[in-house]
Amino acid sequence: MKYLNIGIVLLAISIITSCSFTKNAKTYESTTESFIEALKQEDFDTCLSLMQMENGKGQRLNPDTLRVEFTQFKRMLNAHFGEKPYEYEVVKWEKTLSTNPEESTPTNATRAFVEFNNGDELGVFQLLFDDTTNKVLDIRALDIKVNKPDLLLFWLLGLIPLAVVLFNIYIIREIKRSNLQKKWLKYLAVILLNVPTFTYTAAGNATFHLLSFQFLFGAGFSGQGIIESAWSVGLPLGGLYWLWMLKRWK
């Protein structure tokens, strides 16, 4: 009973935190769009109104210094992506806790990542938000610039994880129709034992993880913008084993 109560409390905290984060994320997305549009139009007064002008040490930031930084940032974007109109999308929000202080998100802050797309190239920059005021603490470009990939191959290769999912579902159906005992253990083996894992990104990068298990029928997909979109598929060892066993018993 004690552990049940602890679990309920942790679940409630998790739900409250998640709702708060989701609410803030919507505000951050709106602020990000307003900030970028103002930056593109060189409306630096609007940019300043969206900035947290007082740092963590209580020091007031200099508006003239920020105007210079905004100008330099806009020139940098134009240098990287050209003067032509570009599209952008807020692809994810992140709070990171790491033993390396440089990798951790500052206390009471959230990182927003924005993907730029000028039709030919993609890039990413990051805004840091203050969770208390919902204003921008910092903006910087990440060292990411790739040619816009041809997504046709990416979606065609997506048929591979789809095939693995259908194969695992087929094996579960065959186990259900069999006379095996403790079928739920066989189901778990099919669902969970998908290893090693192959991952292919929309940017054309392929990776192989020898000891990485791909749960949920052997396939996964992440779709955070184009750069981070990726298919993951595990070798269906559990399904292959029980296919072999079912063939033997027949």
Results as ranks from 00 to 15, higher is better:
residue 39 L to G: 03
residue 39 L to N: 01
residue 39 L to C: 02
residue 39 L to V: 02
residue 40 K to N: 10
residue 40 K to F: 04
residue 41 Q to F: 07
residue 41 Q to C: 05
residue 41 Q to K: 14
residue 41 Q to H: 09
residue 41 Q to W: 03
residue 42 E to F: 01
residue 42 E to S: 09
residue 43 D to N: 15
residue 43 D to T: 09
residue 43 D to Q: 08
residue 43 D to K: 04
residue 44 F to S: 01
residue 44 F to A: 02
residue 44 F to W: 11
residue 45 D to V: 09
residue 45 D to H: 05
residue 45 D to E: 15
residue 46 T to Y: 02
residue 46 T to N: 11
residue 46 T to I: 12
residue 46 T to V: 15
residue 46 T to P: 01
residue 46 T to R: 12
residue 47 C to Y: 03
residue 47 C to V: 10
residue 47 C to N: 07
residue 47 C to Q: 04
residue 47 C to S: 14
residue 48 L to T: 06
residue 48 L to S: 05
residue 49 S to A: 14
residue 49 S to N: 15
residue 49 S to P: 00
residue 50 L to I: 06
residue 50 L to R: 08
residue 50 L to E: 09
residue 50 L to C: 06
residue 50 L to A: 06
residue 51 M to Q: 09
residue 51 M to Y: 13
residue 51 M to G: 03
residue 52 Q to H: 13
residue 52 Q to S: 11
residue 52 Q to V: 03
residue 52 Q to Y: 07
residue 52 Q to E: 15
residue 52 Q to W: 06
residue 52 Q to M: 06
residue 53 M to F: 01
residue 53 M to K: 12
residue 53 M to P: 00
residue 53 M to W: 06
residue 53 M to T: 09
residue 55 N to G: 14
residue 56 G to S: 10
residue 56 G to T: 06
residue 56 G to M: 08
residue 56 G to E: 13
residue 56 G to R: 05
residue 56 G to H: 01
residue 57 K to S: 05
residue 59 Q to P: 03
residue 59 Q to R: 04
residue 60 R to D: 06
residue 60 R to F: 11
residue 61 L to I: 07
residue 61 L to Q: 07
residue 61 L to F: 04
residue 61 L to V: 05
residue 61 L to R: 13
residue 61 L to A: 14
residue 62 N to L: 09
residue 62 N to R: 08
residue 62 N to D: 15
residue 62 N to A: 09
residue 63 P to Y: 13
residue 63 P to M: 14
residue 63 P to D: 14
residue 63 P to K: 12
residue 63 P to A: 13
residue 64 D to V: 12
residue 64 D to L: 13
residue 64 D to P: 00
residue 65 T to N: 14
residue 66 L to Q: 10
residue 66 L to N: 05
residue 67 R to I: 02
residue 67 R to C: 07
residue 67 R to V: 02
residue 68 V to Y: 05
residue 69 E to L: 13
residue 69 E to G: 08
residue 69 E to P: 08
residue 70 F to I: 04
residue 70 F to C: 04
residue 70 F to P: 08
residue 70 F to E: 06
residue 71 T to L: 01
residue 71 T to M: 02
residue 71 T to S: 08
residue 72 Q to F: 02
residue 72 Q to K: 14
residue 73 F to L: 13
residue 74 K to C: 03
residue 74 K to G: 02
residue 74 K to H: 11
residue 74 K to F: 04
residue 74 K to V: 01
residue 75 R to D: 10
residue 75 R to H: 13
